[in-house]
Design a protein around this nucleic acid. Structure first.
Lengths: 213, 213
DNA sequence: TCTGTTTTGTTGCTATGGCAACCTGATATA
DNA sequence: TATATCAGGTTGCCATAGCAACAAAACAGA
C-alpha cells in the first residue's frame, strides 16, 4: 500500500492516514490477466480504480468498429473517478489489462460521503485530478479543431516543447498513436512530417523531435 | 440570492444554508456591461463565477486569430470551477458579457477549505459539475475525431435524439455554431445537410431536425 | 410595407488528406 | 544466420471539404 502515498488522490497524506480513510470506504484489490477487461464500454460504475501494478489501456470503438486507444495507464493511474463523479453516466471507454495487473477499487460514494476528517482532503485531490484530466482533454480538442495536418503537428510539438522545456525532446507516442491523437491518417502524418523536415521546420528520428521555429 | 437554490453547485441546500456557507468564503457580486471581458484568456484565477443574470459567452482564439465560441452561459451557469480546481492553469477561454449581466465570484480556496459542515456537500456538487463538463467535452471529441462531415452530423443528431428522446427536435445551435462545434466549414455543413436531406436521411428547417434513420 | 442586416443555402475551383498498396529498416526469434 | 514481424516511410489516386463569392431567405426596424 506504500505506493498509494505517491498517488495524486492521496497526496499529502501519510500511509497510516490512507489506511485509516480506506477503512471507512469499501474497497477491494483485484488481479487481472493480460487482455482481461477491467471496465466495459457502456458500464455504469461507482468505483474509483487505481492501478497498483502493471499496465492498462483505455480504448473506445468508433461507430464503424475501429478501435482507438485513448489512454495508457501505469502504476498509480486513476480511472473511473470522472465517471463515478458524473453519476449515472455510461463509461465511454473499455479498460483492458496489458499484461498482468492489480487494481484497487474503492467505493466512490462511501469515500465521498465519508465523515472522516481527512475525506475533505481526498475530495480536494480528486477535484484537482479531474480538473487536470479536463484540461488535458481540452488541449487535445484545440488540436483536433485545426484543419490542416501541418497545423495539428505544429500545435502538438509546440505543446510538447512547452511542457518539456527544450527544443529537442522525445514524445511518448508512436506514429500510430500520434496519428490517432491528432485525428489524422498515419500515412498522412508521415507524409506531412517529411514535408516539414524538408521545409526546415523540424527534424526528427523515430520519436525524437527538434523544433526549429 | 434565491436563484442559487437552483444552482447545481448548491443543489440540495436551502437558501439559508447557502447564505450560511457563503459567509465562510469571500465572495462579491459584480456587474458587467455588454461586451465587457469577465475573464481573459490566459488569466490564472482562483474564483468560481456564477452568472446571476444576463448572458455570457466563452470564446477562444485559434493560432491564426480566428474567434471561436466555445460555450454560451445563461443565468446559473458556472465557470472557473474547473480552472480553479486544476490550480495554476491559465484560462483557455475568454469570458465576455453578452448584454448586461451580473456575476457572483466566490473564492475557490476558502470555499474548498471551509470547515463548514455543508462544505462537503458543495464539494460533491462541484465534482459532479466538473465531471459533467468533462463528459460533454468528451462527447464533442468523439465527434471531432470522425473524418467526414456526414458522419459528424449524423453522430451529433443521433446524440441530440438520445438526449431529447424524440426523432424530431430543435437544436440550440445555429449553423455557424454547429459548424464550429463539429469542426467543419459552415458552407460544407450546409452542403452536406442538403445532401442528407436529398438522400432521405433527415429533414430540417432552420434549427428543427427530424432523423429518419 | 420597404429596406438594411443577418442567417442560411448554393456552387465552382482546387488543395488537402484519406485510402490502399507497397517499400524499407529495425527488432525479435528460432 | 535466416526469417517473421512490426513500425515507419513513400506514393498515386481521387473524393472530400475548405475557400470564396454570391444568392436567397428570414428577420428586424422604421
Amino acid at each position: 500500500m506504500k505506493i498509494l502515498t505517491e498517488n495524486t488522490l492521496f497526496k499529502g497524506l501519510t500511509e497510516s492516514q490512507i489506511t485509516d480513510i480506506l477503512s471507512t470506504a469499501y474497497h477491494r484489490e483485484k488481479s487481472f490477466l493480460d487482455g482481461e477487461i477491467i471496465v466495459h464500454q457502456g458500464d455504469v460504475i461507482n468505483n474509483i480504480g487505481i492501478v497498483l501494478s502493471g499496465n492498462a489501456t483505455g480504448k473506445k470503438y468508433t461507430p464503424d468498429g475501429e478501435e482507438i486507444i485513448v489512454s495508457n495507464m501505469k502504476a498509480n493511474s486513476i480511472f473511473g473517478d470522472v465517471l463515478s463523479g458524473a453519476i449515472g453516466f455510461a463509461s465511454p471507454v473499455t479498460v483492458q489489462a496489458v499484461g498482468p495487473c492489480r487494481v484497487l477499487f474503492i467505493d466512490y460514494n462511501q469515500l465521498l460521503y465519508s465523515h472522516h476528517p481527512l475525506a475533505h482532503h481526498v475530495l480536494q485531490n480528486m477535484i484537482q485530478s479531474i480538473s487536470r484530466k479536463y484540461f488535458a482533454q481540452n488541449k487535445r480538442m484545440d488540436i483536433l479543431m485545426l484543419k490542416s495536418v501541418r497545423s495539428k503537428v505544429l500545435s502538438y510539438l509546440e505543446w510538447q516543447r512547452q511542457t518539456k522545456g527544450t527544443n529537442t525532446f522525445a514524445i511518448d507516442l508512436d506514429r500510430r498513436l500520434l496519428a490517432d491523437f491528432l485525428g489524422v491518417e498515419r500515412s498522412a502524418l508521415s507524409r506531412e512530417l517529411s514535408r516539414m523536415k524538408a521545409d526546415g521546420l523540424i527534424d526528427y528520428h523515430k520519436n525524437n523531435f527538434t523544433l526549429f521555429i
